[in-house]
Design a protein around this nucleic acid. Structure first.
Lengths: 146, 146
DNA sequence: ATACTTGCAAAAGATTTGCCGCATG
DNA sequence: CATGCGGCAAATCTTTTGCAAGTAT
C-alpha cells in the first residue's frame, strides 16, 4: 500500500487551491473532514455523516452545501464516490494508486486493498473484449474467517 | 460462457413454482419479461423498462407490483439485482456461473463475461485478508478500442 | 376460507435545485 | 463590485408501504 503520509503528499485544501476552487469556510470544514479518509483508510463517510460532523464545527452548514461540495470535489477529481450495497454514496480522498474494497458484511467495515495482478487482469479482459478500460470497480463482500 | 439454452435449463416460471411462489397473472407477465434476459445477455432492464413492457401486455399492472415482484424474485434467488453507475437498479435471471460486467460508457451497452482467473483471485485476496467471500461484483467501464 | 396480492396514492429516503441574500476574490 | 456560494424549502427521483378490495390455493 502506498505511503499516504509521504512528505510529497499534497493535502486536499491545497489541491482545491490548485484547481482554482473557491475556499469558503464551509468548504474548508468539509475538506478537512474528508482529509481524515487519508489517515484512516477504513473511513468512507456518506453525506449524512459528513454533515453531522460538520455541524459540530459550524452549526449552520446545511446538508445541501455538503451535497454540493462533494459533487464539486468529485468532479475536480479530488475525492472518489463509492456506491456500495447499502443505498447511500460514500466518499474518500482520491489516492495515487487505484485500490479496491472488501466489505465485511457483518460489521460494515470497509478494507482497502491493492492487488497488481487483478489490476492487470482487468485491463487484459477489457482488451480481449475489444475495449479500453476507463474506470472499474471491484467489491468483495465477505465474512471474517472462523 | 455457459450454454443457457441447454435442455436441462429450468425456466423462470418453473423456478417460481419450485420455490412455492404464488403465480398471479401479473407475476407471470413480469417473469416472462425477465426470461428474455437469459436469451439476450445484454438485456438488463430496470423497473421502469419492465413496467413499460408489462403494461403493453396487461395495462393495469402497476409499477408497485413490478417493484414488489423483482424484490420477491431477488430474495428467492431467481434474479440478480445490479447497481451500475447510473442510478436505478437493473435485473437479470440468475445464471449457473457467476459472471461480471463490462459497460460501454458511450453506448450504455452491457457485456457479460466470465474469467476463471479473476474469480480465483477474488477468493485468494479475500482469504489473504482473513475473509471468506460471500458476494462480489466487478464492473469494467470501458470505451471501444479505436 | 384464509392468507397472500394488487392498485392506488401517499410516504419515505437520497439528492438536486430555485431563489435570494451574502461572502469571496 | 461582480460573480459565485450558501441556506432554506420545495422539487425530483427511485423505491417502499398502508389500506381496502380482489384472488389464488
Amino acid at each position: 500500500m502506498l505511503n499516504k503520509t509521504s512528505p510529497f503528499a499534497v493535502n486536499l485544501e491545497q489541491k482545491c487551491i490548485n484547481k482554482g476552487l473557491r475556499l469558503t469556510d464551509q468548504r474548508k470544514v468539509i475538506v478537512k473532514l474528508l482529509e481524515e479518509t487519508i489517515a484512516d483508510t477504513k473511513f468512507h463517510p456518506d453525506v449524512d455523516e459528513l454533515h453531522k460532523r460538520a455541524i459540530t464545527i459550524d452549526k449552520k452548514i446545511s446538508i445541501a452545501t455538503v451535497y454540493r461540495t462533494v459533487k464539486l470535489l468529485e468532479e475536480a477529481n479530488i475525492i472518489d464516490k463509492h456506491e456500495f450495497k447499502a443505498g447511500k454514496s460514500r466518499y474518500e480522498a482520491v489516492t495515487e494508486t487505484h485500490h479496491d474494497h472488501l466489505i465485511d458484511v457483518n460489521s460494515g467495515e470497509i478494507i482497502e486493498f491493492v492487488d497488481e495482478e487483478i489490476e492487470k487482469l482487468k485491463i487484459k479482459i477489457a482488451s480481449r473484449l475489444g475495449f479500453d478500460l476507463v474506470d472499474h470497480r471491484l467489491e468483495l463482500y465477505c465474512k471474517k474467517k472462523k
